[in-house]
Design a protein around this nucleic acid. Sequence first.
DNA 1: GTGCATAATATGCAAGCGCATTTAATTACG
DNA 2: CGTAATTAAATGCGCTTGCATATTATGCAC
Lengths: 132, 132
Amino acid sequence: MAATEAEQGLVEQWRGMLALHARTQCELDRALHGHGLCASDFEVLDLLAEGVAADGDCGYRVQEISDRVHLSQSALSRLIGRLEKDGLVDRAMCPEDRRGVRVVLTAKGRALYGQVRPVQRAVLARMLADAG
Amino acid sequence: MAATEAEQGLVEQWRGMLALHARTQCELDRALHGHGLCASDFEVLDLLAEGVAADGDCGYRVQEISDRVHLSQSALSRLIGRLEKDGLVDRAMCPEDRRGVRVVLTAKGRALYGQVRPVQRAVLARMLADAG
DNA sequence: GTGCATAATATGCAAGCGCATTTAATTACG
DNA sequence: CGTAATTAAATGCGCTTGCATATTATGCAC
């Protein structure tokens, strides 16, 4: 039946994606672990670093980060807490909405990002290049 | 530069994959949760069910499952333990290598799989159809 | 067969995650 | 204004995960 064939195609697509995702995520975690980061940490740093050019003052609201990163709100809150504890980001109250929190890379965070970014890009190149 | 462009392409490919994977995995977990399963549980059941046709006697070695499922050996061991506790699989010693363990679907496990499989397929169809 | 390296699972443990709830600030409505 | 409904983020909690290690079984040298 055509329906079954289409279904089988979806299943294979999904299995392929699971495999590639797991392999890549695992490699990323290993590569970043030496720098004290996990893959989710890097996702957030990557977003923060790309947001502002060089002046480290505007940053993102937690909610904006939450829209772009695939974590629950609670997981993100704790992740930012860890980054802050390690001195990689600062948390500051939003002046315009005092419920909100603004997150900014510190100099240390920016430096670590600069160091780690090529590592992450290399893993992506190695894992995604052929098996796309 | 061409190198930077290629790199940017990889980054976008990876972000797209992260997004699609996270959305789908999350939907799967939600859909299966009502049946007492998580997405990893289903992966294992799916493999076990496809392995043998109807006679439930040969099953898989844990190591064979480990090759096909993207979990650490310890996580898989515990997952099988949970399935066993819920009466969905049986664990039996391998006659030919008594270090090994053979895992087989029980009748209950096969019944649950039959019930849950269309649910999982529907989620895949819904999530992967357009954004492939 | 005894001893030693290796292999297949299981288990102790700490860390990260999601769900539900809490706390604090804003908005809406009488 | 004051009170209820809503929103932003943080926290309690249980569960799953991976790493390191323990346990049991095999195989090989002697």
